[in-house]
């Protein structure tokens, strides 16, 4: 959905011609946009909030956070994780990276969690979305956690990440078996990378914005009353 400049109905950030393509969004804009879009797509408030946080984290790490989130939001058949020691499975279905990531961070310091032994996340869809949560788990347990996807190995706490050929499995959208390994003796930095801006294509922005609009309530005569000055403002 494209809106006109000066469209009076938009107080929040929205795709506008001044934006350019691709556009640069502040991390807080990315977080708010993806939070609302995830809620608009039907996720619980709690998971929607985590989705917004993850999108901003990925963008700050140099990855296309909003695009990754949008691809995940378009999925309809992803399974919740079943945490267990050593291996999280979902009986054949692809694991939801957001729910798995959230559970992974929640289970840090628990026996089923990461860092106790190498942990396999089986058949994980959109694996890049797990990275912010691995970083958070590493912070919680005070150890470095590495993510192995095939031949590639990623340290989510290393700051900016990039798509090198060996990391492509980790950062792609195809489901993979992903392994989380602990590397002792090194305390990690807090999981939030240095703040800067994220990039988004106008098309993706519009798609996320359309989802975000689903959480809003259309106007009614009653909703407009009392929302502002009833008389003029030329006083």
């Amino acid at each position: 959905m494209m809106i006109k400049p000066n469209d009076p109905t938009r107080a929040g950030s929205a795709p506008v011609p001044q934006t350019g393509n691709p556009a640069h969004l502040s991390l807080s804009e990315i977080q708010a946009l993806c939070f609302k879009a995830a809620r608009g797509a039907g996720h619980d408030w709690g998971h929607a909030e985590e989705a917004g946080w993850a999108a901003a984290w990925l963008a700050a790490a140099g990855l296309p956070g909003p695009a990754l989130l949008l691809a995940w939001l378009r999925e309809t058949d992803l399974a919740a994780p079943l945490p267990a020691r050593d291996r999280w499975t979902t009986s054949g279905r692809r694991q939801c990276p957001l729910r798995t990531g959230v559970a992974l961070a929640d289970h840090a310091a628990l026996p089923e969690g990461p860092g106790v032994t190498p942990l396999v996340l089986e058949n994980l869809a959109h694996p890049a979305i797990i990275l912010p949560f691995v970083a958070r788990a590493a912070h919680r347990i005070g150890s470095r956690l590495l993510v192995r996807c095939g031949a590639g190995m990623i340290d989510p706490c290393s700051g900016r990440l990039s798509r090198t050929p060996s990391d492509s499995a980790c950062l792609g959208t195809a489901p993979i078996d992903l392994i989380i390994l602990r590397e002792d003796g090194i305390t990690t930095n807090p999981p939030t990378p240095a703040p800067h801006y994220g990039v988004i294509s106008l098309l993706h922005w519009q798609a996320l914005d359309a989802l975000a609009l689903r959480i809003t309530v259309p106007p009614s005569a009653q909703s407009r009353t009392g929302a502002g000055a009833e008389g003029g403002d030329n006083d």
Partner: peptide
Amino acid sequence: WYISEEKLEPRLGERFSEPGAERELP
């Protein structure tokens, strides 16, 4: 509490006389 589609600003609605409660903010 909800976000108005019209202005993307938070507003307060009357649950039992106004539409939109299914989109309530937490």
